[in-house]
């Protein structure tokens, strides 16, 4: 049995700091997407709380040693939400925040979809949906076999559950009882062409994963406290891989983007104009975040 590296419970003070941190990360996501002029808004905003919790509380990692042998592995299967990972990594100290503005530009470390040959600290190259999940399984298989102390996480989307390869990988994870593996599904119900349940119904997701040998935990993906608990629970479960179904709001934090699939693949400045004109979209979005959706009043308003 490997040494267990426990995930600690959250103090109230830490929770508050993580929530504020996630808000800052959302601002950077919007700015970098606007600067890039293309890319996805809804998914990265929706996963900001979870990525903040992972990088600032859950993962054992070292931004100064991105290839540290004993780091926890965080795979990203739905590569299109990588702006949230880039922004969180910059905040965690993997690289300078100014580099975020090079997203999707020629010569950048920050490719439109993540590539391990361009940036250290990523675990996999992804974009083609479904490919990250099986890679996390392959790495977890070796980790379990060699009693490694590290845990393998894989963040993935709900839409990509439509790809058969995910279930091939799930079957494998169930067969080899990969207890060191935790999949985190961003259950935001949207994909490019519309709502998942219209495009290709996924429910009952929980039953499906249980049938494949997974333990299933459902959480509110914006409740950092609850998500940390879910990861602690996942760590405590032996004999089975775990999937955390994180219910998130696409575009979370920006009123006019929330729940709107038309914001899945558009950056501020290129989105639908039903609420704000393209030229105003970034400022209006940032305004939403500055006031935490009206929860706080900033001094100059």
């Amino acid at each position: 049995m490997p040494d267990i590296r426990p995930i600690l419970t959250l103090s109230e003070k830490k929770l508050l700091s993580l929530e504020l941190q996630a808000n800052e990360i959302r601002k950077d996501i919007l700015k970098m997407l606007t600067e890039a002029g293309s890319g996805h808004s809804a998914g990265p905003l929706g996963m900001a709380d979870i990525f903040t919790a992972l990088y600032f509380h859950i993962l054992h990692h070292d931004p100064n040693k991105p290839l540290w042998d004993d780091r926890d592995r965080l795979f990203l299967s739905n590569g299109h939400i990588v702006p949230v990972r880039y922004a969180t990594m910059a905040h965690a100290g993997y690289f300078d925040k100014s580099e975020l503005m090079t997203l999707r530009k020629l010569g950048s470390h920050l490719q439109g979809h993540p590539e391990i040959t361009h940036l250290k600290g990523l675990e996999n190259t992804s974009g083609p949906l479904g490919d990250g999940a099986p890679q996390s399984v392959g790495t977890a298989y070796i980790g379990k076999k060699e009693n490694k102390p590290w845990h393998v996480f894989c963040a993935m989307s709900d839409g990509e559950l439509e790809a058969g390869i995910v279930w091939e990988a799930a079957m494998f994870a169930g067969k080899y009882k990969l207890h060191n593996l935790t999949w985190i599904i961003d259950r935001n119900n949207i994909q490019i062409d519309g709502f998942t349940e219209d495009i290709m119904p996924l429910e009952p997701i929980k039953d499906k994963f249980e049938a494949f040998g997974f333990e299933v935990i459902e959480v509110d993906g914006h409740n950092i406290d609850r998500f940390v608990d879910a990861c602690r629970e996942a760590q405590a479960i032996w004999e089975r891989p775990v999937v955390i179904i994180a219910h998130t709001i696409p575009g979370k934090g920006v009123d006019f983007m929330e729940f709107d699939y038309k914001w899945h693949g558009a950056p501020p400045g290129k989105g639908p104009e039903d609420t704000f004109k393209k030229a105003d979209q970034l400022n209006e979005a940032l305004k939403d975040l500055r006031t935490l959706g009206g929860k706080i009043k900033s001094e100059h308003e």
Partner: peptide, 12 residues
Amino acid sequence: QAMAAIGAGMCL
């Protein structure tokens, strides 16, 4: 398909 990607995960 998973054989290739799981294999790659083991390579990683």
